[in-house]
């Protein structure tokens, strides 16, 4: 039992990072109805920027988080301007946006290679002091607490933004029904740009957290696996649904850890994706998703 609880704790802290990443994915899908395959690359860039901040410049963690948020947020704006907005002007289909996002991802990764090289990097040890807390045979590290805490703060902030601010309601209105949103005076392109800012910022911080969780894993190529897991999370939770994405991310994190513990680590991916296939076929809107009003 303690093993189970321990792995649950591990799974949740891992899953929370997936959740943060997945939220960004799903928000873009909700607003634009496209899958932004540059998001994993943004995660990688975020982790690398954090490396520069933490390692090269030696700033503390809070400042590093703020800096990463800003840097990758701006990157998101650039992404929208270069890759997505021109397609909207031409009324191209969602497939085209998928492909440009892939192109943008390649450009980002290759630019990251120029700046940071191809070798995996590690954050300086001791950003978070090495301490452990135990209760009833279950141990949690300070690092895990910090990660969970960061994710929770960001997620709560996001929720407040979405429900209490003018821009948040505008984003949700556009996601629900872009034409009606226009009739209410919502400027579509600006709202989309801001959404990309927001989601990329979150994706970047997810990268930073990954870098902290897995020592020495920061490289321009680290985004790939997260791309797949992010997609899995949003499929599970329902595409376009923020809460769903979070729960999906947590589920994937916990599931991953549990499968490694109780089944074989090598079949982890097969089981996970097999389940995903079933979810899609049986309930395409995800376990939590609902029919979007736009589709009616």
């Amino acid at each position: 039992m303690t093993v189970f609880l321990q792995q649950l704790v591990n799974g949740i802290s891992l899953g929370s990072v997936y959740a943060l990443f997945a939220v960004g994915f799903t928000l873009v899908f909700g607003v634009l109805e496209i899958v932004n395959l540059a998001h994993p690359a943004v995660l990688a860039v975020g982790a690398l920027v954090a490396y520069t901040l933490l390692s090269t410049l030696g700033v503390g963690l809070p400042l590093a988080i703020a800096g990463t948020l800003l840097a990758t947020g701006l990157l998101g704006l650039a992404l929208d301007a270069a890759a997505f907005r021109p397609l909207r002007a031409r009324r191209a289909g969602p497939l085209a946006s998928l492909i440009t996002s892939i192109g943008a991802a390649l450009i980002l990764v290759s630019a990251a290679q120029r700046v940071w090289g191809t070798e995996p990097l590690g954050y300086p040890p001791g950003i978070v002091p090495l301490r452990f807390f135990s209760a009833g045979g279950v141990t949690i590290s300070l690092l895990q607490i910090v990660i969970l805490g960061t994710v929770m703060v960001l997620v709560v902030a996001l929720r407040l933004l979405m429900t209490r601010t003018r821009v948040g309601i505008a984003i949700r209105a556009v996601a629900e029904n872009p034409e009606t949103a226009s009739l209410l005076g919502v400027p579509f392109n600006r709202v989309v740009a801001f959404t990309l800012f927001l989601t990329s910022a979150l994706g970047g911080v997810a990268g930073l957290l990954v870098g902290m969780l897995f020592q020495g894993s920061v490289s321009p190529f680290m985004g790939d696996t997260y791309g797949l897991k992010g997609l899995a999370a949003i499929i599970l939770g329902g595409m376009g649904d923020i809460t769903g994405a979070m729960l999906g991310g947590l589920a994937i994190g916990v599931g991953e850890v549990m499968i490694v513990q109780y089944l074989s680590s090598s079949y982890r991916d097969a089981v996970a994706f097999g389940l995903l296939f079933l979810v899609l076929v049986i309930r395409p809107t995800g376990l939590l998703g609902q029919q979007r009003s736009r589709e009616a």
Partner: peptide
């Protein structure tokens, strides 16, 4: 009507005041 179905009634009204 085209109301924003998943937003609350109050949020719909606030959205009306966006401009």
């Amino acid at each position: 009507r085209q109301i924003l179905a998943r937003l609350t009634v109050e949020e719909n009204l606030r959205a009306g005041a966006y401009a």
